[in-house]
């Protein structure tokens, strides 16, 4: 074997090992979601259930229908858990719908508003631009818990407490990090393109909408994915502003599987978690080719 091939194999092994290290919790999550509770409670550590041939049945029971009543090995009728999708304890479809509504409205607002604000900081010359940009960036230093109570007062004044509005309306007023990210991308777009458009009679809005925005699609995709991940996993916002399980989101809903004094049904918790993270993972896998160039050219990477 050539020395170069050996080095390549070595590096490949290293990468595979590191990937497996990162993927292990995810694999464990999926594996636990495909086991019955009896298997989760044993000392046996394995990725497959004791009866692998019943994996399809466990998949159905954990993710969908469950075993509201069943007869155990001693012939005693027992009360079991309902599956994640049909459980009346945790209304998963409703939580998913609420999460989707918040995600769609929030991501649309964030992408559009951040794109507009970033254009103002990158392509429009105005007095005090640098100072306002610095102030904008400084808001990144303020953590959410610090503004939690004032925000609560504000949203209460609007009559929004207990509704989904506090979770998506603020996204329509941009976010410093995303503004920064898009501004960096816009600065790399040659000024000559804007000048040419201006000569052709386009206003700032026309230049933004017809020239800059189409060119910035990879960066916009990055903003969308980052914000979607944030919204999908946000726990504190829904916890503070939502007051009824009718409008809870998935991040809050997962807590319904945890119990104060033990006895957590880990297989169902993992099934619910798998269902919760699956859309993000699939979306990432499908769109990574599209938004990775955005990361590379917006100053966040390489």
């Amino acid at each position: 074997m050539k020395p170069q091939t050996a080095v390549r194999i070595f590096y490949l092994g290293l990468v595979v090992a590191a990937s497996l290290g990162f993927a292990a919790p995810l694999l464990w999550m999926v594996s636990t979601s495909l086991k019955p509770l009896e298997d989760v409670g044993t000392s046996r550590v394995a990725l497959v259930p004791v009866h692998p041939e019943r994996t399809g049945q466990y998949l159905w029971e954990n993710f969908y229908e469950g075993r509201p009543t069943f007869v155990d090995e001693q012939g005693v009728e027992r009360v079991g858990y309902e599956g994640v999708w049909t459980s009346d304890n945790v209304n998963f479809p409703l939580f998913l719908r609420n999460t989707l509504i918040v995600a769609v409205l929030s991501v649309s607002g964030m992408v559009l508003s951040s794109a507009i604000v970033a254009y103002g900081f990158a392509k429009v010359r105005w007095r005090g631009r640098g100072v306002f940009f610095a102030i904008c960036l400084a808001t990144m230093m303020v953590p959410f818990p610090a503004i939690m109570v004032p925000s609560y007062f504000l949203f209460k004044w609007f009559g929004w407490i207990g509704t989904l509005q506090p979770l998506w309306v603020p996204a329509w007023f941009a976010n410093a990090f995303n503004v920064f990210l898009l501004r960096q991308f816009y600065l790399q777009i040659p000024e000559e393109l804007s000048d040419a458009a201006r000569i052709d009679g386009l206003s700032h809005w026309g230049i933004f909408w017809r020239i800059i925005l189409p060119l910035a699609r990879p960066a916009l995709a990055v903003v969308a994915v980052f914000h979607l991940t944030y919204v999908w996993n946000d726990f504190l916002g829904p916890l503070v502003f939502l007051h009824h399980q009718h409008n809870f989101t998935l991040a809050l809903g997962l807590q319904f599987y945890m119990q104060q004094h033990g006895g957590t049904p880990w297989n169902l918790l993992m099934a619910a978690t798998t269902l919760t993270v699956a859309p993000l993972l699939i979306l990432f896998a499908l769109t990574q080719r599209f938004f990775l160039p955005g990361l590379a050219t917006s100053g966040l990477k390489g």
Binding site: V149, K156, V240
Partner: peptide
């Protein structure tokens, strides 16, 4: 009685009470 299950009950109740909108 409208029973609402929620997590972080102490923090949530305290914030809602200070905000004048407690359960």
């Amino acid at each position: 009685v409208d029973y609402v299950t929620t997590t972080g009950i102490d923090l949530k109740t305290l914030i809602a009470t200070s905000g004048g909108d407690p359960p």
